[in-house]
Design a binder for these strands. Structure first.
Lengths: 207, 207
DNA sequence: TAGATTGTTAATCGATTAACAATC
DNA sequence: TAGATTGTTAATCGATTAACAATC
């Protein structure tokens, strides 16, 4: 694959925001948009948006703006070459089940293709059309883009090791455990207790 | 209240990590710890830890290190004056229910004191000892530290407005919707679709 | 041409890291 | 005293913002 220019981390993190916004513009049949308009609508700085869009798409027309269609295509290409991305969820507890029940995925190019657990007493149960499978069957699945880990903290690292050994390159980690992985594997953490704690500190620190 | 020295955002975000670590040291009866040991155990830079601990506690003893007990007390004070912090969950869908079922809260000084929804057909149901209440009853609750918003996107801002009007100063937002609030109200977003998208971009961008 | 908008270069800001001074 | 560890000051790095140049 041809090497892309490296996009700064901070810009990458804003791409989903732009993606949603561009989608809404297309729905409203807007054809052309200026950076300043985007900035106002998203509550960002104008210069920042101009720079971001330049990095992301890089072909705005002075005096005119950006073609919405082109922006959408450029952003789509950045996000993924594939139309549908395959996700597995490991851990069929409360969080795992909630994810499988969530119906916002299909619309947004994510497809949950497997739900796994190691608890014999629930394997075989069906949650929203997904049969809970044994983790032993994990290796039968291929071409997985992202694994969601929603197991108890103390087995999280083991599960991560397994997932990495299968060649999966993206992990969404719902546990409290900091996962150690090779650095070509990307991990995002959703640590609810930490976020609650940070909220308390920020409240407390502001008085 | 006396004004504290302002702790940088980046340091605040690492405090939960240190807090957990210090707790584990106390469990193992460790009395004294050095910054370099902390750095190794947490996989952080040594200088960063030294600076963080200095900001957080600020009374390390050269040649000795930090007293674990003192670190724990300083961190606790930063996190909250209160022993137990009161949380409400708004939205008794999959995510809301999963949160109420989660049993890691009590141990960690968070207490869910109310679960709310506006769907008449589920109000009155009981989830893990929490009766689902009507959002109309929200105003009967006081002294709430954090509201978790787990409702459909299109009503998220309304719920946020309500929550803010009740004087709540911390929001954990599970919706896709960017919430607009007064700036003395702190918001943390858990946007699963965005995180999945960022994972795809990072994978794609690295090839 | 003049004005609006993009794109680029420079300045600022905050966070991290490196080098060194202080101290028990 | 010497060595280990903290604390501080300076350098570096990345992200944001400001100022300006380019252009349709």
């Amino acid at each position: 694959m041809i090497n892309k220019k490296n996009i700064p981390k901070s810009v990458i993190e804003r791409i989903p925001l732009y993606a949603d916004y561009i989608k809404s513009l297309e729905k409203e049949k807007v054809k052309i948009i200026s950076a300043s308009r985007v900035a106002i609508d998203l509550g960002l700085g104008e210069v920042q948006v101009r720079k971001d869009l330049n990095i992301i798409a890089g072909n705005g027309k002075p005096k005119i703006g950006y073609f919405v269609l082109d922006l959408r295509e450029k952003i789509e290409k950045l996000i993924s070459q594939k139309k549908i991305n395959r996700i597995i969820v490991i851990g069929a507890g409360n969080i795992g089940k909630a994810l499988v029940m969530y119906d916002g995925f299909e619309k947004d190019k994510f497809n949950i293709v497997g739900l796994f657990d190691n608890d014999e007493s629930i394997i075989g149960q069906v949650v929203n059309n997904h049969k809970i499978l044994s983790v032993n069957e994990l290796n039968k699945f291929c071409d997985i883009d992202i694994a969601v880990i929603a197991v108890p903290n103390d087995v999280a690292q083991n599960v991560a090791d397994l997932v990495v050994s299968l060649g999966i390159k993206g992990i969404l980690n719902f546990t409290n455990q900091k996962l150690i992985v090779k650095d070509d594997v990307k991990v995002k953490n959703i640590d609810i207790l930490s976020l609650l704690t940070i909220l308390l500190i920020e409240q407390n620190n502001q008085k």
